[in-house]
């Protein structure tokens, strides 16, 4: 009797019941669950790709996407027009500066903030700080920029008065091209820091307490545990987030930059997406759909190249990657 019991292998013990029908065998239920998303992605992200054709054409709405004539230069006229435009390098520089600084600050500061907030012992204090920090995220961009204009209003703005007290000019910093980037980044952090840190807070909550116990036994202090236990546990997440941000390096948020635009800061605040807007909604003449699409396509191709490169480097260096 005992011998016969010993004949069961481990495989026998974990063997699952046989699938009762094809639905479960092929996992069709799972496919059905994914179907709405697949359909959504297909309809709204793949089907519109057809429209990219107009970046190679001189589109006019009377003849439509397929009937409009191809452009000169083998269909690349609009791309050539863009890369030879006098403000091309200014647009690229402004976009990259805003994007790179946003990535640097928006990726690192939420991590630091989350690591330290995680160490607050009193739950009520932690919750209070969290709410205060992520509440600004719910202010709309339009209102947010409106607040900035009021704070920096010439002569009377609160922040202008503080700057004047430090010997600065009483004109608004909103029309200073040198101040534009700083205002953009700092106001963005004020608005988003709490929100962006939520994902890291969630990750830190899942850190195995045994690791902390083991580190304590080994004599690690609080700071050491932050850097040697908590930080490594969120690095993979941080890397994925970073790679995804880098994949959007030329996609700086259009609306905030556009709203912050003033004639005085235009040399810093004109980026690719605001330029596309001006082309698409010109004061003069008709919308230039083909040219705007060409710039958008150019933008996307650069983003893909940067994304693949960043992913490749990350895989080589840290073993963390999107694919």
């Amino acid at each position: 009797m005992a011998n016969s019991t010993l004949k069961f292998t481990e495989r026998d013990l974990i063997r699952k019941p046989k699938p009762r029908n094809l639905w479960s065998k092929w996992g069709i239920t799972l496919f059905l669950m994914a179907l709405p998303t697949v359909v959504y992605i297909f309809i709204f992200h793949y089907m519109p790709l057809e429209g990219l054709i107009i970046s190679f054409k001189d589109y006019n709405s009377f003849q439509g996407m397929w009937g409009s004539p191809w452009t000169d230069m083998g269909g690349f006229k609009h791309f050539v027009t863009f890369v030879t435009a006098p403000n091309f390098w200014t647009l690229i520089k402004n976009t990259l500066v805003l994007s790179a600084l946003s990535i640097i600050f928006n990726s690192t500061l939420p991590i630091i903030y989350a690591l330290f907030l995680n160490e607050v012992r009193y739950k009520w204090a932690k919750k209070t700080v969290q709410i205060i920090m992520y509440a600004p995220y719910f202010i709309s961009t339009v209102v947010m920029v409106g607040i900035l204009f009021i704070l920096f209003r010439a002569d009377t703005g609160v922040l202008t008065r503080i700057l004047v007290a430090f010997g600065m000019d009483s004109t608004s910093a909103m029309s200073n091209p040198k101040a534009f980037v700083a205002i953009y980044i700092i106001s963005g952090l004020w608005q988003g820091l709490g929100w962006w840190s939520i994902v890291y807070m969630g990750s830190l909550a899942n850190v195995d307490p045994n690791l902390h116990d083991a580190a304590k036994i080994d004599g690690a202090g609080r700071l050491r545990r932050i850097f040697s236990v908590n930080f490594p546990s969120i690095v993979p997440l941080a890397v994925i987030m970073l790679i995804m941000s880098i994949g959007n390096i030329l996609n700086v948020g259009f609306e905030k930059v556009y709203l912050m635009y003033t004639p005085g800061n235009s040399v810093s605040s004109e980026i690719i997406s605001t330029y596309v807007y001006r082309i698409s909604f010109p004061d003069y003449g008709q919308p230039q759909f083909s040219y705007a699409t060409a710039i958008g396509l150019f933008n996307s191709v650069i983003n893909i190249i940067v994304l693949v490169t960043a992913n490749f480097i990350s895989k080589k260096v840290s073993d963390n990657s999107l694919w």
Binding site: Y275, Q288, Y291
Partner: peptide, 10 residues
């Protein structure tokens, strides 16, 4: 019109 629009945009 197209060329004017492109020039004026920048």
């Amino acid at each position: 019109y197209q060329e004017i629009s492109t020039i004026k945009a920048s």
